[in-house]
Design a protein around this nucleic acid. Structure first.
Length: 807
RNA sequence: GCCCGGAUGGUGGAAUGGUAGACACAGCGGACUUAAAAUCCGCUGGGGCCUAAGGCUCCGUGUCGGUUCAAGUCCGACUCCGGGCACCA
């Protein structure tokens, strides 16, 4: 960029970077802090490609808030670290044939030294956390054990999502549209023994707390949907000619009289015994086919319903009629009881199935009490019909009535179900903390004793996953074989490593306590700093990281280890940035490389531009023409302050007083609500006024610099120093404003006639209706529009307008 | 299909139910300059009318309706775009 203004960002930014580091200005004394404020942002995954501009956008928005808070006198703690375990790093390591043990430190170094330190953020590197550090994952393992001891970790064999490319299992939320979230490979099913965390035990609490935590509404909504509470009833169906019963879950007990058949999931345990002789072969074939099908095939929305009849019948508990029992893959084993009562008249899926297999359709709810021919299922509420004594009752009301009635017969029970599933945390991979469990033939599965932690991840020459369904660790005899901590006999180690999301589910607890090698987090320090005051990150983590983190926090709370059960007082989801109206991606070749922009325009300029681009919480459009405007603004600030010799006088001019106080108020309020783009607009106005009115007063520029400091910290420091200040601008205090001066003494007052603007008059502020009316009605335009008309109404909006309604 | 967002000038975007388009980019004009760049200043939603500058007037926030003295903002239906979830009984 031009040096015409003398604004040399390279020199200035290097100077302040060095000075801040020498003075340890951004290191927080976690013990002595008097007004602690924990400012957290989601830590990055240090990929070999380098820092993405999306990360930078997230970090800077958080850092600006931190700087603002610090200038208000808080002891702000802004730690940073690296989420460096996981398949992404491991896959990349495999691809280029370098061990992740070598690759990861290299990536981290590049991230930290070459990129993150250039951003001008207040990162406190003295509390850095790396999840791959044994001193950290020791405590990740310890947390696993805490959950294990509470009965929240358990092992079960079940069909799991299997990514054939990553050669590992995936949690439900890591499968997107039937494909692996990381590598996009089609996900299949496998029967494997896995470790799970019982997050479902916390489903209701995770849901309830959403009512009071101060989080972005969009994030809360995503979590509510993911938890997916549904209220209904378990209904018991007798089986014709057998002693057993079959329980189904339904949210529509009001439709029970319309249940004309039942469907079991192919994996349902009763499938085998319900298949009668004539149907056994077709049932077997169907079950086999369903187990072979992939997620993608089963999720194809266009495909037709399939299924087979078992030959058996259940008894509808309301009507007493026998109804056929079918199996179909549209019923999922993992939800409810894995069996449903089908009400084709009032459920679209059942309707399609019944049409295809010519099963009876009985309408029991009608919009107006009359039966109508159905072209599709009628799913709305209405009036009950064809249901004996319940006829005529509104369907919503009959839900509880029918449940009560059947409950009286011992055939129903009100029930709540959640869509949320337990968290599968086993990974059959190398690059993660080994799950700290030892298997002994005599003693069973035993947690590794605390004094033996960490279970070190062994150095393996060959760390490739092999598709056996076992981790590469299983190939290391040295690793597997150990002694049972209980009986001392020969025992074997668990060979799975934990899901990467466990590493990041507790990192916020570690940051303040990094100095303690002998505990995961210190009680006093934790009491002082947590929960986190402000957490900023992407909404893509609403159902993953943020849900897991809340769960781990609750579990630790219940174990008596921490006092709070919600980790983040405030969470804000920032928006996404696009480039020239298009998504950023490698294939489009429109990736913004932050390094280049820092080099060419300066970190201050990139910071300010990213925030000016659009509303922080909604995201924005990165355009190269746009950044020039911000650079231009910073140069105007630079030029003005370096060229003017500011004087120490008081400001007398009311307009200048207004410009300064108004901007102070607006910027303060805007930053508080993360409306950074408008805050910058107010600063630009303040600068425009400085040129226009040729302001020379010192206080005006000092105010401007302090308001600008969170956005452009290097520039602000440099000019602050040049104005004769010895101390950093960070401790100069946040500017105060006087409410009196944030309002103009003379205003432009609008007069509307019948809602249309007809005249604008200049009047003193704060006039009453009595004072205004003579002035308004003396106005020529007002006279013109009201003459000969009847005035029906006059509405005064103080200091804004008067609307005169005439007829 | 369901759940969340969103749609405002040539462009990015402002606007507690109260003057739509703040701020910025691009464009145009002026000053400075031999010239250009840079800089500073001004104009800049669309149409029409009158005029000397300037003024007057109508239309305008995805579409159609509604509420209100007043709607970009609230309500109802719809279209399109982005994101998330997806046979969850």
């Amino acid at each position: 960029m031009s040096a015409a203004s003398g604004y040399d960002h390279i020199t200035i930014e290097a100077k302040w970077r060095k000075r801040w580091e020498e003075q340890k200005l951004h290191n927080t004394d976690v013990h002595k802090a008097e007004r602690p404020f924990y400012n957290l942002m989601m830590f990055p995954y240090p990929s070999a490609e380098g820092l993405h501009v999306g990360n930078v956008f997230a970090f800077l928005g958080s850092d600006i808030y931190a700087r603002f808070t610090r200038m208000q006198g808080y002891d702000v703690f802004e730690p940073m670290g690296f989420d460096a375990f996981g398949m992404h790093s491991e896959n990349y390591a495999l691809k280029i044939g370098t061990n992740p043990r070598e690759l990861t430190p290299r990536s981290i170094r590049h991230f930290r030294e070459k990129q993150m330190k250039m951003l001008g953020a207040m990162f406190d590197w003295s509390h850095e956390v790396q999840t791959t550090d044994p001193a950290y994952y020791k405590w990740t393992q310890w947390i696993f054990i805490q959950l294990f001891k509470q009965g929240l970790a358990y092992k079960k064999k079940s069909p799991v999502n299997w990514c054939p490319s990553c050669k590992t299992v995936l949690a439900d939320e890591q499968v997107m549209g039937g494909a692996c979230e990381r590598c996009r490979t089609e996900v299949g099913k496998r029967d494997l023994e896995q470790w799970y965390f019982r997050i479902t035990k916390y489903a209701q609490r995770l849901l309830d707390n959403l009512d009071w935590i101060d989080w972005s509404e969009t994030t809360k909504m995503a979590q509510r949907n993911w938890i997916g509470r549904s209220d209904g009833a378990d209904l018991v169906f007798e089986l014709q000619g057998r002693d057993e019963t079959l329980t189904v879950f339904t949210t529509r007990p009001d439709t029970i009289f319309g249940a004309t058949y039942m469907v079991l999931a192919p994996e349902h345990p009763l499938v085998g015994s319900l298949a009668t002789d004539g149907y056994r072969d077709q049932v077997k074939a169907y079950v086999a086919k369903a187990s072979r099908e992939s997620e993608i095939e089963r999720q194809d929305e266009t495909r037709e319903k399939t299924g087979v009849f078992t030959g058996s019948h259940g008894i509808n508990p309301a009507t007493g009629n026998p109804i056929p029992i079918w199996i179909s893959d549209y019923v999922l084993m993992g939800y409810g009881t894995g069996a449903i009562m089908a009400v084709p008249a009032h459920d679209q899926r059942d309707f399609e199935f019944a049409r295809k297999f010519e099963l009876a359709i009985v309408q029991v709810i009608s919009p107006d009490g009359r039966e109508v021919p159905l072209e599709q299922a009628y799913v709305d509420p209405g009036v009950i019909i064809n249901s004996g004594e319940f006829n005529g009752i509104p369907s919503e009301e009959s839900k509880s009535k029918m449940t009560e009635w059947l409950a009286g017969e011992g055939k129903a029970e009100p029930k709540v179900n959640y869509r949320l599933r337990d968290w599968c945390i086993s990974r059959q991979r190398y690059w993660g903390p080994p799950i700290p469990i030892i298997y002994c033939d005599k003693c069973g599965a035993i947690a590794v004793p605390d004094e033996d932690l960490p279970v070190m991840l062994p150095e393996l020459a060959d760390y490739r996953p092999d598709g056996t369904g076992l981790s590469p660790l299983a190939r290391s005899e040295e690793f597997i074989n150990t002694a049972c901590p209980a009986c001392g006999g020969p025992a074997k180690r668990e060979t799975d490593v934990n899901d990467n999301f466990l590493d990041s589910a507790w990192y916020f607890l570690r940051y303040p306590s990094t100095e303690f090698p002998d505990r995961a987090f210190d009680t006093n320090i934790t009491k002082k700093w947590l929960p986190v005051d402000m957490y900023i990150g992407g909404n893509e983590h609403a159902c993953l990281h943020l849900m897991y983190t809340r769960f781990i926090t609750m579990a630790l709370h219940d174990a008596g280890l921490i006092e709070f059960e919600e980790p983040f007082k405030t969470f804000r989801a920032h928006g996404m940035i696009i480039k020239d109206g298009d998504k950023m991606s490698k294939s489009r070749g429109n990736i913004v490389n932050p390094d280049e922009y820092i080099e060419n325009f300066g970190a201050d300029c990139l910071r300010s531009y990213l925030m000016f681009m659009g509303p922080y919480l909604e995201g924005g459009d990165f355009r190269d023409e746009g950044i020039k405007g911000v650079r231009h603004f910073l140069e105007r600030v630079w030029r003005r302050i370096t060229e003017v010799r500011p004087t120490g006088e008081e400001i007398a001019d009311p307009e200048t007083l207004y410009a300064m106080h108004f901007a102070t108020k607006a910027v303060t309020e805007d930053i508080r609500r993360l409306s950074y783009n408008t805050a910058l607009a107010r600063l630009m106005e303040m600068m425009n006024h400085a040129y226009k009115a040729d302001i020379k007063t010192r206080i005006y520029y000092e105010t401007l610099l302090r308001l600008l400091a969170p956005f452009a910290p290097h520039l602000a420091e440099e000019l602050w120093e040049r104005m004769g200040h010895g101390e950093t601008i960070l401790v100069s205090g946040w500017p105060a404003y006087d409410e009196i001066h944030t309002r103009k003494s003379e205003i432009e007052f609008v007069v509307q006639i019948n809602g249309k603007v007809r005249s604008r008059i200049r009047v003193p502020a704060d006039l009453s209706q009595e004072e205004l009316e003579p002035i308004v009605f003396a106005d020529e335009k007002v006279k013109e529009y009201t003459s000969g008309k009847t005035i029906v109404k006059k509405i005064l909006v103080r200091n804004k307008l008067m609307n005169i309604v005439v007829r």
